[in-house]
Computed example of a mutant assay.
Amino acid sequence: MLNNKIGGHYSQAYDDELRQAVERLLAMATLAQQQLSDAMTAFINADRALAKQVKQGDRTVNNFEVDIDEHCLDILARRQPAATDLRLVLSVLKSVNDIERIGDLAKRIAKALLKDESGNRPTEAQLAQLNTMGAKVQQMLARAITAFEQMDADTALAVLREDKAIDDDYAQIMQHSLSSMMDDASQIGVSLQISQVAKALERVGDHARNICQHTIFLCKGRNVAHLTDDELQQVVEKRRD
């Protein structure tokens, strides 16, 4: 359900255009989330058919990006939005870029399975590690999208802090992969495959964090891209005059 802060203009058509921008973004986000979920399922279960579907589905995500970009640019040109309306359009444009990259990363996970011709598979323990990290990333992404939809800076701040746990998981998986390659040269291919998936998941976490920052910008009117978490908290807690 869209936040009721959108709208309230003299022109109902303008309200509808702003709502459509957010609705299309949320539809794109839903697709990208499904792509990521399917990519992880495909990799964990060695489901090559599902991996191929993920790879093919990336074009739909890209088409969403073009459609939303054109819609937002049309609003900028014709409506010349200001204040909150301008921040909304800019936040949608920024978030669209992050969501498109998430779709690319889902495809990368699928391709990690499809490119492997050796038939060697990670151990159950290795797959469990990736699955755990993947679940955290997917939950973080879902909550980031919800924070944007609800224009909730407090939730966005809480969600972006979850990225630290994902970074920790990534570091642990990479350390185990490196040790495995050093101990047994025959594991190099599998370890590289695991590393590719873990890196893609880590990058999804970064993009989810970006979406949270866009939400804070939308709500507070501050560009917070390069602030520390403590500085972000100060921005979120400060009331606008």
Rank of each mutant, 00 (worst) to 15 (best):
K111Y: 09
L88M: 10
A106F: 13
G57F: 00
D69I: 05
K136H: 08
A110I: 07
M133H: 13
Q80S: 04
V96D: 02
Q126A: 15
Q126F: 05
I109G: 08
T84H: 10
I109D: 08
R143F: 07
D58I: 05
Q138E: 14
S91H: 10
A83H: 01
C72Y: 02
N131H: 13
G134T: 11
E65K: 01
L86E: 05
I102F: 06
I145W: 02
Q80C: 00
Q56Y: 01
Q53L: 05
G119A: 14
V96M: 06
A77D: 01
R108K: 12
I75M: 03
A128T: 15
K136R: 10
L86N: 08
L88P: 04
R121S: 03
E65R: 00
V66N: 01
L130N: 04
D85K: 09
K115R: 14
I68Q: 08
E117M: 12
E124D: 15
L130A: 03
G57P: 02
F64A: 03
I109S: 08
L90C: 09
T84A: 12
A106E: 12
E100H: 09
A135Q: 15
A83N: 03
L114W: 09
N63H: 08
Q53C: 06
L76H: 05
D85I: 08
L90F: 11
E70T: 06
R87P: 07
P122K: 11
L105W: 08
A106M: 11
S95E: 08
M133T: 13
V66L: 09
A112H: 14
L88Y: 05
L127M: 15
A77Y: 01
A82W: 03
L127G: 10
M133W: 14
D58N: 12
R79P: 00
D74N: 09
P81L: 04
E65M: 00
N62W: 06
P122Q: 13
Q56E: 01
I99G: 06
E65N: 04
R108G: 13
N63L: 04
S95W: 08
K136E: 10
A144G: 07
D98I: 06
D85Y: 09
A142C: 03
T84V: 10
A128L: 12
I102Q: 09
R143M: 12
K55A: 02
L114M: 10
L105S: 05
I75Q: 03
I145P: 04
D69G: 03
R143V: 08
A125D: 15
Q139C: 10
A142V: 01
D104V: 14
G57D: 07
K115G: 12
E100F: 07
I68W: 09
S118Y: 10
